[in-house]
Design a protein around this nucleic acid. Structure first.
Lengths: 214, 214
DNA sequence: TCAATAGTGGACTGTCAAGTCCAATCCTGA
DNA sequence: TCAGGATTGGACTTGACAGTCCACTATTGA
């Protein structure tokens, strides 16, 4: 998102751009699997078939690379749920979104790519934290937009705050993912998502009897 | 909780026990501030005024020490909220508990001592993960017991599952703490706790909206 | 009292990771 | 074509960290 081309501001050749992209992608994969501290740049170089000098040609240092990884994971996470989040205009669509999230995380025990990074890096440098904030912000914004649509369609009470709802839902999701990753079971995530859906439901305009299941 | 005296099973003198305890406490503090990977045993030794050999006299390796840190943080977290969690018998008491949590985390930006460890270590060794699961479990159990009391007093619908409620609330809390730590603002935590309280409230016996199973 | 055992000090080793350096090679535009 | 910048290879330096070793001191219980 906000990530800057730390070292190279000069134009990149398509070959150079490809190398650069490959580095970020490999770094994203490895850090997601083992954490940032536990991922060495030598590992990244080996996996990306790239030499040390190339890595330092494109990134000032490890931290700069990590910032780009955060941005890349943010895009990846948003892209993965875009089909569901894009048509977020009704309570039914919200349930579909929750099912998508669940499906994306049923197999993996690695947790949220962005959440894990946030937990590890939120207390590092300001620049890194800013990138994390931007990531969560984009995510919340995407959800918030959906809730706004629901609101304009009369599905949500006009007194509800789309932004607050988005943050609450995101918090439930993150917490559920953490517990699920720890327990090696999707159960906590399912419970957390159900709670989030009911929370949104409680802000529905005609909230007398509400459709069930998640 | 489950933590074992990995190296020394022989009796400890009070002096030895004190040294051992000091090591764990310092390690807990440092890892909470910077993460496990980023905390070196040399740092722990320096801070605890202890030599390397002492550390390895009491712990098989870093992982064994970390397991004890997890247990210690679990106890610390539970102890901190015990006053509020102990009298968890009504909706009002639950709000008091939420206020306690909030007060405990208003100043700090370090996140949950247990949650941070879980995020970093859940994919390490089985033994470590087991310790983390035990920690969350004890926490959820403590909340669950409170909800059971509420239920037996007729404050919660008999169809509500205290255990599921506890896990949902814990997930909201963890997610809220993560977002708050990232944003350097208590706002997401406040929103997450409000959602959690409403969720429990939705299972109250006398709520007009019919309580539905979770 | 006096071994035996618990506890302690701190130097040392091997490994691994971040970051540097420089020479070689590729690519583009004039 | 060919100069100059973009790109690449990989050895090297420096430092940090987990874990080892051994000699030393304190304590305890018979």
């Amino acid at each position: 998102m906000t990530a800057s081309r730390t070292v190279m501001s000069r134009p990149l050749t398509s070959r150079g751009a490809a190398t650069r992209r490959r580095i970020v992608e490999v770094a994203a994969r490895l850090t997601h699997a083992s954490g940032v501290e536990a991922t060495s740049l030598d590992d990244v170089c080996a996996e990306a078939k790239v030499s040390k000098s190339q890595l330092y040609h494109y990134f000032a240092d490890k931290e700069a690379l990590v910032r780009e990884v955060i941005a890349a994971q943010t895009e990846r996470v948003l892209a993965a749920q875009e089909p569901a989040i894009g048509k977020l205009d009704s309570a039914a669509a919200l349930r579909t979104w929750a099912d998508t999230i669940l499906a994306l995380n049923r197999s993996t025990t690695a947790g949220c790519p962005l959440g894990s990074l946030a937990n590890e890096l939120a207390n590092q440098s300001e620049a890194t934290r800013a990138e994390l904030v931007a990531g969560f912000d984009a995510w919340a914004e995407r959800l918030s937009r959906g809730f706004s649509v629901m609101q304009s369609r009369g599905e949500l009470s006009s007194s509800a705050s789309p932004r607050d709802l988005a943050i609450s839902v995101l918090a439930a999701l993150q917490g559920g993912l953490l517990l699920a990753k720890t327990a090696h079971s999707p159960a906590p995530l399912i419970l957390a998502l159900k709670m989030a859906l009911r929370h949104v439901d409680a802000h529905r305009r005609h909230s007398k009897a509400t459709p069930r299941r998640a």
